[in-house]
Design a protein around this nucleic acid. Structure first.
Lengths: 258, 258
DNA sequence: ACTCTCGCTTGATCAAAATCAAGCGTGTGC
DNA sequence: GCACACGCTTGATTTTGATCAAGCGAGAGT
């Protein structure tokens, strides 16, 4: 599908492109096209060579990986976010697979165009570096979350993060199927159920996708959220790893991953 | 300590600076200085603001993190490598602490100089992006390693990676104390001992820092190393996460982390 | 030589999480 | 309406890893 004005203007204002000069922006998007995918479509498999930067405009995309018949979710991307940037910059193979969780609308930007634009405009290139640095730090948070907390603590922090993103109200909606959430949090669906059960002591009660957080102080006492692991303060756009994303200093639209 | 010619020329050739033009290189290193630290020195704590890019010229540095009285090692840096780059690019706080494992020699480059240099030279800026992308992908490998493998499998892969880096001989030397190794692999020292014991079935025998790998095929059958997780093919310079680092396409000197 | 310390190992116990196996409830298709 | 599939839960069991508690052995300081 040819790229239209509506799309370019939407994308022009994300942090990645905002500081680019017009000619670099045009160069980056030369050859870009818009594509729609139904839910459950595999966009990319681990090991595939990566020819495009993906920019998710609508929908949701799961980044995952597998080994020896196990698999896991590494991140869930929400609009407007890029993914697979690192592989594009290095012109190398994908380390994660990507598939749509919902019907999605994706802008596909040729990697070669993007790299040329970076080399032609230091400000744009700097924005790419900021973006990558933010992704890196999101992953650092994710590793810390996994190595330092047990599964109940991860869930408790996930709930508090969602609360902050969904406006601070005491009842939140789970944005994904529980099995996807379990995989993102690094546990089995069975254990996710049990972790929810444990958190009833902290006033958490689940009804389908709705979760009531009855006793926030108790939940916080258990979760002990930390700005060095959790990203409560970011805008409610992305969920990377256990849902932490970060933008250059005081920012703004989330843009994430790979 | 003032920076001398020997140091600038050593650093000039790492991938990060190789493509920079002379004026950007000079700008980046303006205000840089060399510092020596004894083993066990804390260079940076989590949450500290980061004013310098660190370039490790000699020694070894551990990057770690802690939460609720637990702590863990996220990476071990070997020369010549940078660390804390992402925080410098974003001019933000450290997400990891850094401390020397051995007496170390570190070139400290002011963050502001580095950012100015990036904005003045798109090629240098591109190299920074490549560096960050490599760090990012190293962390992705690390997350996969932790979420998909159990501790014995992680150890088995670690041993095979070390073998590849130490020249492919069937006896390798552990480069760190076992307690550090355990923390890097995400387990307790007790469990590291037991994991070694389990691997005796695969021909692994330990004597102090020396490890004999008796039955490589059996070990590989258990470890199932994968180019999408392990970085056997990189140069033997770095150990990030479980020891995977990656450089832009066909590269070279390792440079890593944060 | 002799303790002392320290890093590592070993064993016993405990806690956390994965796995196996039903069951339950809702929604779909026939 | 009825059967079926599917996502989720619950319980029982096993496996994995953490914790607690000794012990062992090499090296450092006296």
């Amino acid at each position: 599908m040819p790229i239209r004005n509506t799309e370019t203007s939407r994308v022009r204002n994300i942090p990645l492109f905002r500081g680019a000069n017009d000619s670099a922006f045009a160069m980056a998007l030369s050859g870009a096209f818009l594509q729609r995918f139904p839910a459950g479509t595999t966009l990319l498999m681990e090991g595939d060579s990566v020819d495009f930067l993906y920019i998710l405009l609508e929908g949701a995309v799961e980044l995952g990986a597998s080994w020896k018949s196990k698999d896991t979710t590494l991140a869930i991307i929400r609009p407007i976010s890029t993914f697979i940037l690192a592989a594009v910059v290095l012109d190398s193979d994908a380390l994660m697979s990507a598939s749509t969780l919902e019907r999605s609308e994706i802008l596909m930007v040729p990697g070669e165009s993007l790299r040329r634009a970076m080399k032609s405009d230091a400000n744009f290139c700097f924005a790419v570096s900021e973006e990558l640095a933010g992704c890196y730090r999101g992953l650092v948070r994710s590793v810390k979350n996994h190595k330092l907390r047990d599964s109940t603590e991860r869930l408790a922090n996930y709930l508090l993060t969602q609360r902050a993103r969904q406006g601070g109200k005491d009842t939140i909606l789970l944005p994904h199927e529980k099995r996807v959430l379990a995989s993102l949090l690094g546990m089995t669906p069975e254990n996710l159920s049990r972790a929810f059960a444990k958190l009833s002591a902290q006033g958490v009660s689940v009804d389908g996708v709705q979760v009531q957080l009855g006793k926030i102080p108790a939940l916080e006492r258990l979760a002990r959220p930390s700005p060095l692991i959790d990203n409560h303060y970011a805008q409610p756009k992305n969920e990377l790893g256990e849902s932490h994303i970060e933008r250059g200093k005081g920012l703004l639209d989330g843009v994430a991953a790979l």
